[in-house]
Design a protein around this nucleic acid. Structure first.
Lengths: 194, 194
DNA sequence: GTCTATATCAGGATAGAC
DNA sequence: GTCTATCCTGATATAGAC
């Protein structure tokens, strides 16, 4: 147990994953964190403040996961790419929590312009990372083509993620589709004349 | 102006597109429809009932749009496919409304299991339609491969749609990515050995 | 079928003590 | 920094007249 503030943010991440951004109630959050509602307001001013800091918290945490050097031995560029894209599709509480929260963030941004800035920045960074990994597989492919591939792959991930989380798409199937999408895009980058 | 019931559903579609599923308030809906809140309850029992019927209404309407024979002259199979996938990316109020409502429905289904049934059915039907169009472009491709391509294309559409609606992706760029995705998948279906 | 009230309640937010 | 208690708004839902 860290300081209360962090405990509240961790609790908020769990509640958002369980109820959604729209479903987050201050009292449920307080109970989950084991504190009073007043304390939540003390630390975060109001509901919007809670949400802002929670989404920031989640996004930082996601960065950490992504850059996790894991114990799987050295990977070639393509494996690394696949690995990185498949990180989002695992049935671990932490991963589900992050994916759910991100999905909520994206969906909420449609109606809440204040959220759009952060979201756009994070998405752009992600696309850039993926384009970078792609460029290691296909070093000769031109940058705009790489970016377009990255945009499609990440866009697909977002779409499939929602399907998975809403129970419409089994995890294994989602993973299969992602792997094949990677194969297809890499193949495509080898034939720029299409 | 049809019967009040339909007018309420049309208004609900507009309000959901504007405020989201969670942002739909019975009074705003009533005002938008030009009726009293009591009448809304009379016709739809409660808020959940409004939502259920609204989503059904939207989904029916989307079917109509999709099967719209339009005035663009006869298209070959591939053009028809492209056309059909690009329908969702137009800056027309009706289209925006439908896309937004669908996005909301998908996002809500993550937290509301009751919505999942309808959603899964509609998604499956969509995938099937796209697979069908693909099979006309690549008549020799095996069915599972066609289905996988359709799943990726529709999944991508869902992901890009959210990006577009949240202002993260300009319309023209989205359309370009979709067109290229179609090209890539069709190319892929011509090389089943990958 | 439709309206004008109005009851009811959940949930966000604050006051004030410790 | 943290709690208990409470206020108050906004939103769902119903009663009863027409």
């Amino acid at each position: 147990m860290r300081d209360r503030r962090t405990a509240i943010l961790e609790a908020a991440a769990r509640v958002v994953a369980r109820r959604g951004v729209r479903g987050l109630r201050m009292e449920e959050l307080a109970t989950e964190a084991g504190v009073s509602t007043a304390l939540v307001y003390y630390h975060f001013k109001d509901r919007a403040g809670v949400l802002r800091h929670t989404l920031e918290f989640i996004s930082d945490r996601a960065d950490r996961y992504t850059s996790d050097g894991d114990g799987g031995g050295p990977l070639d560029a393509r494996e690394e790419l696949e690995q990185s894209l498949l990180l989002e599709f695992q049935d671990l509480p932490a991963v589900r929590e992050n994916s759910t929260a991100w999905g909520e963030l994206r969906a909420s941004a449609v109606f809440e312009p204040e959220l759009r800035g952060d979201l756009a920045r994070a998405t752009l960074a992600w696309i850039h990372d993926v384009a970078d990994l792609l460029s290691r597989v296909r070093p000769t492919a031109p940058a705009p083509t790489l970016t377009a591939s990255a945009e499609r792959l990440t866009g697909l991930l977002e779409g499939l993620s929602t399907r998975w989380l809403s129970g419409a798409l089994p995890l294994a199937h989602a993973r299969g589709l992602v792997k094949e999408a990677v194969a297809v895009e890499i193949e495509r980058l080898g034939h720029p004349e299409i």
